[in-house]
Design a protein around this nucleic acid. Structure first.
Lengths: 221, 221
DNA sequence: AATTTTTTTTAGGTTTGTCTAAAATTATTT
DNA sequence: AAATAATTTTAGACAAACCTAAAAAAAATT
């Protein structure tokens, strides 16, 4: 039925999928940065993915996943997020420790395994980072979430996801006591450096740099 | 600390471990058959495993795992059997469907993942095939089980494990309604073909060929 | 003990996925 | 529009893990 792809191919597909969310297209250099490899290696693989009809690609042009490629990507994202949910809910991982292990688990492509895991977890719709989990047909709940920088003053909201899993970011969030689910309200905006003063869980007040604000996503409550 | 080995290396180590249970030593041809690959490929890898100090090996001689290699093997076996237990107990897999998926899961070597999984499962001591699961130090419960051919007449016993996971064997067991945990009693032994007449679960009577009897293991009850 | 058979190793080749260095193309600047 | 800079591709190499065919060693036969 659906072919099986190598771990390397899957990593390319997954990263192209995430990168093309922004503008619909991805460049060789962008993808090389995301995969921490060299542009020459990217070109090699792009040609292979094109032959396998996973990618729309012409030399020297930007590229994007074909419908086939997108479907494959959604399968990988589904597996990744289900395993993250499992690790946090069942194996008591911290939500900031799951990423690496899920990167390995996501490559095990057994329909029975994944669907039974989904059922065992009671068909969760969002992973521990707040990102939606595709169902077995690849359908995802859209999120009515947006960037913290766009949140109006004194509007109560809830942190739903973070824009990166870098350990630097997670360290900072832990230190500031911000997690998925934290209740926040923007109290002041400083135009000098675009930093924000935030009220956290109706209690303490913290300051947030612009760099941090752009990677925090919230939903009004 | 402990190095990380490739999937291929782990498969070699695991198979050498199982094969050397019989006589303490393994030959190139034996291992090639077990891994469904060619003797020349085996030789290549043996040299690499020797360099990594996982294997005692001299050209043209039989070989066996070093203490390091055995420890590594026990880690792989632990992961394999824990995942098998998880698949059967939590994800409702049949005990005859778990092997392939567990072969993939076993290669994910994260101490936290494996130890938390172990805890989540309540530290099971035996996998669904009746084989003992090593603890986090590599210690296993010895089994007081023996081959069905050695079971005395009219001694009640319980099937604890099977000597192979071949689909042919599993098909036959399913047909005869024999599973791990079945209660059996040997009623007659026919010396002509060394077949056995068995009473199953105090109810029906079935006939078992010698070839089948040698791969069934039991424990007196 | 010499010959034949079997087992194991060596030599050389293939595929996948990576790399560096150089060439080609596209984009930007002057 | 020409020159420069940035991006992308090509060419050629490399490591891992496999293969086939031939050579070497060990085991079994006569």
């Amino acid at each position: 039925m659906t072919p099986n792809y190598s771990e390397a191919e899957e990593n390319y597909i997954k990263n192209i999928y995430h990168l093309q969310q922004a503008t619909g297209f991805v460049t060789t250099n962008e993808l090389a940065a995301a995969l921490r490899s060299k542009p020459a290696s990217i070109t090699d693989m792009l040609k292979k993915l094109k032959v396998k009809k996973l990618l729309h690609y012409e030399p020297y042009k930007e590229f994007q996943l074909s419908p086939q490629g997108k479907k494959t990507a959604l399968g990988i994202v589904r597996r990744h997020r289900l395993w993250e949910y499992f690790l946090v809910e069942k194996l008591r991982f911290g939500w900031d420790e799951v990423h690496e292990v899920a990167e390995e688990l996501e490559h095990i492509n057994s329909k029975k395994l994944v669907d039974q895991l989904d059922a065992f977890l009671d068909f969760p719709r969002f992973d521990p980072h707040g990102d939606p989990i595709p169902d077995s047909n690849g359908k995802m709940n859209l999120q009515q979430q947006f960037c913290l920088t766009g949140l109006l003053l004194n509007k109560p909201a809830e942190v739903t996801s973070v824009g990166s899993q870098s350990s630097e970011l997670l360290e900072l969030l832990k230190h500031k006591n911000i997690t998925i689910g934290s209740k926040v309200e923007v109290k002041r905006k400083f135009s000098f450096d675009q930093s924000l003063e935030l009220e956290l869980d109706k209690q303490i007040t913290v300051n947030i740099s612009k760099q941090l604000a752009v990677v925090l996503f919230v939903r009004p409550v």
